[in-house]
């Protein structure tokens, strides 16, 4: 942008200061220089305040909603989809409202969330990287003593970073994932945590972790690279070999071998909005293959070619796998 008017020059300078201070982190010299610039002219201060206010507006928005809404230019068919989505919303809304009312409002704003079918990678303040699988909710709670991720539901893959506090001469803070079932302490590592209704499942790909069931803290279990285990609030184990394909969803792929169709439907259901049911009459059939999660409709459409099943659409959001007509 070529700044021509004084207003434009001030806006550009304010924007530059805004980002310079963010990049610098704690830098007293930069803080002082910025303060001097702001004090030099009331218009500087006004432009600075606007930048802070705008950044604050963004910070108050839930990313899972705001990004697709504001960046819709990248998704030209969003409008067409919305007609269908609106219909679904009208049906689904009351239950969602009730569920929401029972939770404190800040949860929506504090945590990281993905919608059904959405997968995302985030970088935490310490540089650790976290992949969020579909329909996942995780709260990030970092303080001076601990780095804690609270997995509310869904699945995350974590690649921990060395605590930057070490470089500052402070002791490294432990990195802990907490689930309903208990806690998982990372010992410098890459690992996967998935929360099901009653169990948490952990698979370690590098380094090691230590599991502590919530109500049986003496039943600690150490997992090294290549191992996986499930645990509940009162028990952990047994150890098994980690499934090397379990984290393939990070690349948008689901890989299964001889999986029960009922389990496959449950797995696929996590990656799309609405209901995906499997009739017990076909639930014991086995399925193998690699599937692209970006298009779950295409996966469903291909099922009858591989297995004797029929895919029944009650609506876009209500699908059942049944036996084919006799």
């Amino acid at each position: 942008m070529n700044a021509t008017t004084p207003e434009q020059k001030i806006a550009l300078a304010a924007a530059e200061w805004h980002f310079r201070l963010r990049e610098a982190g704690a830098d007293p010299a930069a803080d002082a220089a910025c303060a001097a610039w702001r004090a030099a002219d009331p218009r500087h201060e006004a432009a600075w305040a606007k930048a802070e206010r705008i950044a604050g507006s963004f910070a108050g928005l839930p990313g899972a909603i705001a990004l697709p809404a504001l960046d819709r230019r990248l998704r030209p068919n969003a409008r067409r989809q919305a007609v269908k989505a609106l219909a679904a919303l009208l049906v689904a809304a009351p239950a969602g409202w009730l569920a929401w009312h029972s939770q404190p409002a800040r949860q929506l704003l504090a945590g990281e969330r993905t919608a059904s079918g959405e997968r995302r990678r985030i970088t935490l303040a310490d540089g650790s990287r976290v992949h969020l699988n579909s329909a996942t909710a995780v709260d990030v709670e970092f303080d001076e003593k601990r780095r804690v991720l609270r997995l509310q539901r869904g699945e995350i893959f974590i690649d921990t970073a060395v605590d930057p506090q070490l470089a500052a001469g402070l002791p490294a803070r432990p990195f802990v994932v907490e689930t309903d079932a208990g806690s998982i302490r990372a010992l410098g590592t890459r690992f996967l945590v998935r929360q099901d209704d009653t169990h948490s499942r952990v698979a370690v790909y590098q380094g090691a972790v230590e599991i502590r069931p919530r109500r049986a803290v003496d039943r600690q279990l150490r997992l090294d690279a290549g191992e996986q285990a499930s645990f509940a609030a009162d028990a952990a184990g047994p150890l098994a070999a980690a499934d090397p394909r379990a984290a393939d969803w990070r690349d948008g792929r689901l890989f299964v071998r001889e999986m029960r169709l009922a389990d496959f439907a449950a797995e696929l259901g996590r990656h799309r909005p609405g209901l995906l049911r499997c009739d017990p009459a076909v639930g014991e059939q086995r399925i193998s293959g690699a599937f692209e999660l970006a298009d779950t409709d295409a996966i469903l459409a291909s099922l009858p070619e591989a297995l004797p099943v029929k895919v029944v659409y009650r609506s876009r959001y209500w699908v059942t796998l049944t036996a084919p007509d006799a």
Binding site: L61, L67, R72, A78, A82, A85, L89
Partner: peptide
């Protein structure tokens, strides 16, 4: 914007959906 917003809301898991008042504020 409203269409994209509704679409994004519909994609949210139920428990993460904001209340009607929050929807309006957002």
């Amino acid at each position: 914007l409203e269409a994209a917003y509704l679409e994004a809301l519909a994609q949210l898991p139920e428990a993460a959906a904001p209340s009607p008042e929050q929807r309006l504020l957002i």
